[in-house]
Nucleic acid binder design. Sequence first.
RNA 1: GCGCGCGUGGCGGAAUGGUAGACGCGCUAGCUUCAGGUGCUAGUGAGCGCAAGCUCGUGGGGGUUCAACUCCCCCCGCGCGCACCA
Length: 991
Amino acid sequence: MSQAKAVADSHDQPAFRYNAATAQKIELKWQKRWDEEGTFWAANVDGDLTDGKQEHAGSKTPYFVIDMFPYPSGKGLHVGHPLGYIATDVVSRYHRMKGENVMHALGFDAFGLPAEQFAVQTGQHPRVTTEQNIANMRRQLHRMGLSFDDRRSFATIDPEYMRWTQWIFSKIYDAWYDPEYQRADGGVGSARPISELITKFKSGKMDIPGHQEGTWDSMSAAEQADVLNEYRLAYISKSPVNWAPGLGTVLANEEVTAEGRSERGNFPVFQKELKQWSMRITAYGHRLIEDLDTIDWPDKVKMMQKNWIGESHGASVDFEVKTTDGIKDMEVYTTRPDTLFGATFSVVSPEHDLLAYVPAQWEAGIPESWKGGFETPRDAVKEYRRIAESKTAKDRVADNGEKTGIFTGLYATNPITGAQLPIFTADYVLMDYGTGAIMAVPGGDQRDYDFATKYGLPVIYTVKPLPDSGDDLSNYEGSAPFVSHDGIVINSSVDSTHVGGVALDINGQRVDDAVQTVIAWLEEQHIGKGTVSYRLRDWLFSRQRYWGEPFPIVYDDNDVPYLLPDSMLPVNLPEVPDYSPRTFDPEDSESSPEAPLSRNDDWVYVTLDLGDGPRRYHRDTNTMPNWAGSCWYYMRYIDPKNSKNLVDPAEYDYWLGPDHNKTAGKSGGVDLYVGGVEHAVLHLLYARFWHKVLYDLGYVSSSEPFHKLFNQGYIQAYAYTDERGQYVPAAEVEEVPGSGENGKEPEFTWHGKPAFREFGKMGKSLKNIVTPDDMYDTYGADTFRLYEMSMGPLSESRPWNIRNVVGSMRFLQRLWRNVINEDTGEVSVTENSPDGKTLKVLNRTIAEVTVEMENMRPNTAISKLIVLNNHLTTLDSVPRAAVEPLILMLSPIAPHIAEELWNRLGHDESLAHTPWPVADEKYLGVENVTAVVQVKGKVRGKLEVSPDIDPEELEKLALALPAVQDRLGGKPPRKVIVKAPKIVSVVPAVK
RNA sequence: GCGCGCGUGGCGGAAUGGUAGACGCGCUAGCUUCAGGUGCUAGUGAGCGCAAGCUCGUGGGGGUUCAACUCCCCCCGCGCGCACCA
């Protein structure tokens, strides 16, 4: 029998010892009681979810703490999954004891690919398998004693939930972004109802793009729809999208890896021109960055969002290009307009429109390297485009640094110098960033420099290092560009013959000032303007899957889209003969998506009265991505059954509104949101975007969804292989005794044969899975919870080591023994007052543990509770007044044993709402402290002194110590630093 | 390449300028036990020493300070994110 097992085994032990069997009994008992009594119900201000047993919600401070929406996988949980759930449960229980009204609930994110695939494999409807998975997950989590308000649970697949997901879509669809709108919060720019835009078109306050002024009413429905589509926040895009034939669906940029493959399934992704739903998240790019300052998130996640959004400030500049078809404008985007004088050529992306005007013949004298061996520019460009098109987006980056390109035969006029710049096409310029065209400044940009070097293009430096930098332009000339912003502008004035000339290189002007100067000049000349660019692309929002939310959109026979009215929601999924996606050869870029929803004509074709009498329509057959449901679930916990509103506004204000408590501040939102860092730019960006739209449209009162975000680490695990490299069951591997000592690697055996340890994830194929159920059987839920919380800081990843669990079990056993006589089962505490030492330890522990709990450091809280418990163990009899606060402080972490002991100590009520202990100040100011005496920073003596000892007195005592005298060698000290009553630091005289 | 984070006993980790290694695992010895295990008591960074004690010690090197795991600079190693974004 393994040691670990023996601790928990009831065999041959005192009759009333705390062991796995006892734990099992009391855990099930308390879980039942909590359920029956609604112990963890959160009280709404009004309506059905006010909680009759508690004080009215309005009199309590709300505290909203949730985990990231779990996905009910068919595989069940292992011990790594619930780490975050246990952490939020500890926080929830702690806040309840502080007298707060705690919102803690869990729903299920149940649409999505794995559920659909699992259903296809098992031949069952995804709803059936998904609901089974949810039931299993609920069981596993319930057995852990998590303090959720179960009345508030739901799944994204519930028709009532889906109704509101579709409702939000319809509000986003029916809105546009007015960049000039003055918001009530003082900001500028807001989502507004599309009706306001139509009013502006009708009244002539805004021009109708591509149409005559004041002609709105005379335009056809299709024409109007096309115009509005360009403004709607949810719109039909007709641009290249990520198509993964192997998955049979299109994907958002965020779901495509840097290698140009699908995050799920790792299939190749191709750019394909398709009509798809998009969300205009780019309209919110600036606010999504700016408002990061108002929320309490890890810097790392903020940085990842900032990088993903990629806001850059620069200028667009118009270049004229002479073609056989007349003069064409080529707009370039640059972040360094100050280097306009250094532009010696131009590059357009292979997809750029300008390439339609490539001349038929090379001019005389074009270098061979520019031609790429082609007879005509048209052949060269055609072939270059063909190759570029065949590369996936990230193949282009693959050869990292080595730039290819071809001369187009075209020239652009530098608007500031009048110089003729040869235009190249090269795939290092991307069509979907900026304008797809750049002015190349080899003197100031590494990529342009590389390109210029390869094709023999001139290099002009327009910036030189600052005089006091110790750097000089000669260090760069002929070998590198000078890319720094810290520099003085040079070589940047035009001769007087050029119209509207401007000089940037005067008065030692520096780069940042020159940028402003040149932007002002460009705007004055109407040849450019200051602009902002984003790396962020609009969010591709449709998928060709069965298991997702249908769009509340129908089309008439002319394919004009119509939004279904709220009264027609939800649009439920139809039964289809086959709900599996149509997948293709993963490499088949010529294939096109086919939506499973299109397989049921009865569902697709409908006759509806949308206000102008019954007409025939066909439904949109796409479904929404998995992210849709998880974009807004947190607010539904507040009001899960509301059929009139997304969430009742008054309840929203109470739970999530700005300033709803001291934690959330002005941004409002969830007080604590715990989850893995993997959602940093997916879920968390999408949810913030939706939230801001709902905020702009007045449906929610807080500007951010999640005020504080905490990323928990991952639980990792050892896996073992045998000599052939096959995985062997980790549970059966033993460590060779003494092998891991003196710095040597430990050795392992599996059934007597050598085994080799590796470190990584927990997984079936690695044969190292430990499930929560294993833990309940062997130790009980409390030991499991305690162990996970004591392993180390919550934010760090660490290895699961089953061997160590026994320590947590022993702590609970000792606590139990301090209260219960193991042989008789009687309560054994004394009613006598604790002695002075015990009071000191107790009150110091209360003070310290409170701080640890506030800062989410359960690991150090636990170690301090153990110290207190170990102290109580040394006493002849354990005073009630000392052990009761200990039980209360342990209860958030190990709630079942705490409830049981609390109950046996004579309390009838659950301790869940019992006030958290408060330290008595008078025992914190201890009567004696240890003063440390240092000589040259090394501890040489200790003194027991009064805490309010006079510093001079302390100094005298310290200097009198023999160990100090010895080191002073009879000379007076050079310096003595006294920080009474803790430290005396003596500096001896120099020899 | 750029950005961020991390590096402490045999192991998980504690200490954010003031007694390095709290607490736990493991290990050693003793008690309990027919025995193993459990439980209990004590010890456990390394080196020297019978001991008192001394010396060394937080990836490496340098600096600031009376005092550095902690702050600053350089280097090494590991992890994460971004990566032709003009």
